[in-house]
């Protein structure tokens, strides 16, 4: 009987969606291991300069190519620099690049994908065409082409600005490297995010609660930001986790090829590249950065898988 009777909610509240996901994630040992590895790495990257026993640039020509020892846990390189310090500093580079690239790519992807999926029409068609084009060209090739074609004009422009303003900032070639390399990385990384968000939005925009919001007369902007997007974040988080790992590998690959971070700034990629040349004599120079890169990549994959299972539970309650 409904008259007068008021239903009370049950006292014991089931846990929230996020808390449920967190609990499922915690039960996944591989994901937790991945999370721990990444936490350690973030800590090391953040506080690297205060943790490293040596400066990553300080050379000691009397102690070149030393094998791992207590003083130099990962040994030293051909200029007598401490490899562990350089690996730690490389973590900073890797994280900085990965986070910057991913943030930019996700921002572009989310905005474009959401608009395309929600409004459809010509914008959607154009966007899909652009993502198809971008994704069909090999990534490395694309970055190399962008770099090759833009590096010189930008350097010239910066030089000109320097002459005008005498601001030393314009003489800093590291900025060009960063902006160019990582800008082009972001440019090739956003299409998958855009496609993912678009697909999510396409499926969510026809859910009854979205139709109900339209029936309430709410504006498209409110519907998109409060009803559609909050329900699309689950798969996006999984994609971001995987994307961070991919961006790190990509950065290493570019640096390995010599188009990314330039020496003497340490990057795992250029360290591997250097190590590869002498690996028969000094395998530790190759092994240290390669092993760390491998561990980090695997950690991101485990975490991504775990997040996927935790956020999209199927067939279990």
């Amino acid at each position: 009987m409904t008259d007068g009777t008021i239903i009370n909610p049950p006292e014991d509240r089931p846990s929230s969606l996020w808390r449920d996901a967190w609990r499922r994630l915690r039960r996944n040992r591989l994901a937790v291991a991945g999370l721990v590895v990444l936490a350690v790495l973030v800590f090391v990257a953040a506080f690297g300069p205060w943790l490293t026993p040596y400066d990553f640039l300080s050379q000691n020509l009397d102690a070149r190519n030393l094998p791992p020892s207590l003083g130099h846990p990962f040994g030293t390189d051909d200029l007598g620099r401490d490899v562990m310090s350089r690996v730690i500093y490389g973590a900073r580079t890797a994280f900085l690049v990965a986070v910057l690239v991913t943030v930019v790519a996700v921002l572009i992807g989310v905005v474009l994908g959401a608009i395309a999926g929600f409004y459809g029409g010509r914008f959607d068609k154009t966007l899909m065409w652009v993502t198809d084009m971008t994704m069909s060209v090999p990534q490395l090739l694309l970055v190399v082409v962008i770099n090759a074609s833009l590096k010189q004009p930008i350097s010239l422009w910066m030089e000109a600005r320097y002459m005008e303003t005498m601001n030393p900032l314009y003489r800093n070639s590291a900025i060009i490297d960063f902006v160019l390399v990582f800008g082009s990385m972001a440019l090739i990384s956003w299409p998958p995010y855009a496609r993912l968000v678009r697909a999510q939005v396409l499926s969510i925009r026809n859910r009854p609660y979205v139709t109900a919001a339209r029936a309430l007369g709410l504006t498209n902007r409110i519907i998109l930001t409060r009803y559609v997007m909050p329900n699309a974040v689950g798969p996006l988080i999984v994609a971001i986790s995987a994307g961070l790992g991919t961006a790190m590998v990509l950065e290493s690959a570019f640096s390995f090829l010599g188009i990314g971070v330039n020496p003497p700034t340490p990057s795992w990629g250029n360290m591997i590249s250097d190590g590869l040349r002498v690996w028969t004599n000094y395998p530790h120079l190759l092994l240290a950065p390669a092993a760390v890169l491998a561990v980090v990549t695997v950690a991101f994959n485990f975490l991504g898988d775990g997040l996927n299972d935790a956020l999209n539970p199927k067939g279990q309650k």
């Binding site: 969606l17 859910r207 009854p208 609660y209 109900a212 409060r226 909050p230 329900n231």
Partner: peptide
């Protein structure tokens, strides 16, 4: 459908 008529995040 009562299960999809409300925004799960609100």
């Amino acid at each position: 459908d009562p299960y999809s008529t409300l925004n799960p995040r609100m």
